[in-house]
Computed example of a mutant assay.
Amino acid sequence: MINESALLESKTLRNSVLDRTDVLDRVKALSLLPDGMHVTTAMVAAYFSVTVEAIRALVHDHRAELETNGYRVLAGTELSDFKQLSGIQSRTGSLALFPRRAVLNVAMLLRDSEVARQVRVYLLDMEYLARTQPVDNSVHTDVVSLDDRIDQRITHILGKTVVPMFNALIASSSEHRRELISLRQDIENVEQRLCWHHRRLSALEGDAPTDSVRASLSSMTWQALERHVADLLRRDGCTDVVVRQARSDRGIDVTGRTADGRTLAVQCKNRAGRATVPSADMQKFAGAARAVDRVNVALFVATCNFSVEAQAIADLSGVITVDRDELEAWSAGARLKVLR
């Protein structure tokens, strides 16, 4: 197996494992800001048990790489909007934010941190972890329901056994590497969706606080929604992501490239209080994305459902629709199939 120190030296190797942000919580719980997406410099330092100055020095040396993975500094109106949305208090004129992908990037660059070293070991020595952390087969007899126990066992097996097995196969296989990576992503997606559905059911049954992702989406302005979608795209490996934030007639709010280089255009609709996205909006976006810009991937993201007519136009024109439920799942960690 590759030694964990190789991640410190090889950017290519780092890029190959940046989608495994779930590793962060498996090594140590990562506390997030109320938006459920970001952490501050101080929070990154606390996670890795180092000083804030150490994180700032690392950002200074590797800023371009970190920015590719979502690191950014807010100021002015953008900072005011974010503070209002997240409810945080900050008297400084700027605020540095790290999404989970950038935090994982820090773990692969930070030398003097035992937590960072453990993250690197987990990423590259999955076979070892699978042997030393076997699946717990004990039967719990506490007040947890049967369905809860099943959910917990499935997610535990997926995370601790199946995914490490795929990592070991990927590391030793060249002929079927692409197929194995695709299968691993499917397994991870199932694991993430199970966790998300469990949280939603718990919230509906009154067993958990209101879902933070849903609350965050409900409070977003259209500008915040576009930035949120851009962050999700970066988290899932997209590059050259640009938020236009202009009310143009062409209806394209975010552009970029998928991890495999396909061109991407996104329309974001914040339709609070509206039942569905009408067909006129879909027709306008489909024309811009397909006839004018001719992008490879056209994505229409909405905080509501799509009308039957709008969905029909999307199907005919090849536009991928993401409705409220799918947006919540995406925000909670599931990956969109079209971006894999």
Results as ranks from 00 to 15, higher is better:
A246P: 00
V121I: 13
P134I: 06
M282P: 03
I88L: 12
A310S: 12
L129A: 08
L109W: 12
N270Y: 06
E188R: 15
T239K: 12
D151E: 12
S94C: 10
R63N: 09
S212F: 08
V44Q: 03
S16E: 11
A75S: 15
A171W: 03
P278S: 08
G318Y: 09
C195Y: 05
Q133V: 08
D240E: 15
L336F: 01
R26L: 07
L204A: 14
K337C: 00
D207C: 09
R100D: 08
M126T: 14
C268R: 01
T12E: 08
V115R: 07
M165Q: 02
S317V: 05
A334K: 11
K160C: 04
R131C: 12
F98G: 09
L233V: 00
R149N: 10
S279M: 13
H197M: 15
A208P: 11
L85A: 12
T155I: 13
L124T: 13
D281E: 15
A168E: 13
T210I: 10
K337M: 03
L204Q: 12
R14T: 01
A302N: 02
V135W: 06
L336V: 01
W196M: 08
A334E: 11
S49E: 15
V163L: 15
M282R: 01
T51S: 15
R214Y: 00
T303P: 04
I187R: 03
Q223L: 08
A298V: 02
Q192N: 14
A275V: 13
K269G: 05
Q267P: 09
S90Y: 02
G273A: 04
V52E: 15
E114A: 10
T276F: 13
A171I: 00
Q185G: 10
R335L: 03
A64D: 15
A107H: 06
L66V: 01
L232P: 07
T263N: 07
